[in-house]
Nucleic acid binder design. Sequence first.
DNA 1: ACCTGAACACCGTTCAAGT
DNA 2: ACCTGAACACCGTTCAAGT
Lengths: 187, 187
Amino acid sequence: MRHRRDDVVDRALAVLDVHGLPDLTMRRLGNELGVQPSAIYHHFADKQTLLAAVADTILARGGRPLPEGSWEERARASCHTLRDACLAWTDGAEVVATVRAFGLGARAPYDELVGVLTEGGLDPELAGTASRTLLHFVLGHALDEQTHRQAGSAGAIASDPTSTDHTSDFETGLDLVLAGLAVRATR
Amino acid sequence: MRHRRDDVVDRALAVLDVHGLPDLTMRRLGNELGVQPSAIYHHFADKQTLLAAVADTILARGGRPLPEGSWEERARASCHTLRDACLAWTDGAEVVATVRAFGLGARAPYDELVGVLTEGGLDPELAGTASRTLLHFVLGHALDEQTHRQAGSAGAIASDPTSTDHTSDFETGLDLVLAGLAVRATR
DNA sequence: ACCTGAACACCGTTCAAGT
DNA sequence: ACCTGAACACCGTTCAAGT
């Protein structure tokens, strides 16, 4: 079987979603493709580069057009889109956060936020700082949520009833940051 | 040579600081201790547990007493202490973030922040959400900063002059979140 | 209590060679 | 252009046995 770069990414996403990031190894992926692990290196320089492509695909597939409205509404929508994209895949937040930590790819959400905020009339430097702050919040929150979920499914406790509602908690935290930004923006 | 649990953590910190997290392997650590890798499993159940102890030590060593003052000043100091503790060690932010993602340990900064905010008269639920939001920001920012640093030292570019001043960027972002929290707190 | 020695079941990556 | 086969240099972890 011969494959293209996109076939490899598609299969990597399938392995990720079904078995999680720890099982997404080059050997396993080769197996699923019916190919030697070394064959993957024809399409990607290394595993980091492959993971960057996986993260970018997660973000692209989960992309939604920005709504009309104020920069606050648009920034809020952008953050929701990012969160939903991460949560739509097993270990999705970890993949995106890891790729960002590598310094490769996963830059689309940042660029979108900076665009929204500068178009909203914010000072470019503040827009950058605010975008990174929002990003840290969204990814950190999604990472926490996915960790908490898998801890629940691995442990004996089935769906902890005392757990916070993650979605409303996300909303509250997002409001916090956006409220602070509104104070700085209108100054 | 016979060792105690603390000896192992101390040596792990030394390996981390000199060679970084990727080189902090059980086999390498055993070597540095003059012991078989399997001997470490007498002191720690697995590598995750060891890393949790490393993270807790990083946080404990970097600990500073909270200043007197308003909850805003105290929360700001708490965040600065956390950031400094992470940045004081090679890959320190990554270790703390990883341990938090495991769901083990590294809980002291969260507990301290919740304490500061509830003592400041904030609603406990809001205090929890706000503490997590601050934590996501601080750790995400420190992670970015360490990534950026090592990318600079690995690449050919020596100390990129166009790079933002990380400390003032941190200050701006922290102000953003705290300003939002002040709005919600006095409501 | 702390450690050895050996094994088990894996990793990512390289590279000459094939079609 | 895409892949094989084999190797290299590693991992974390277990476990019977030693002192």
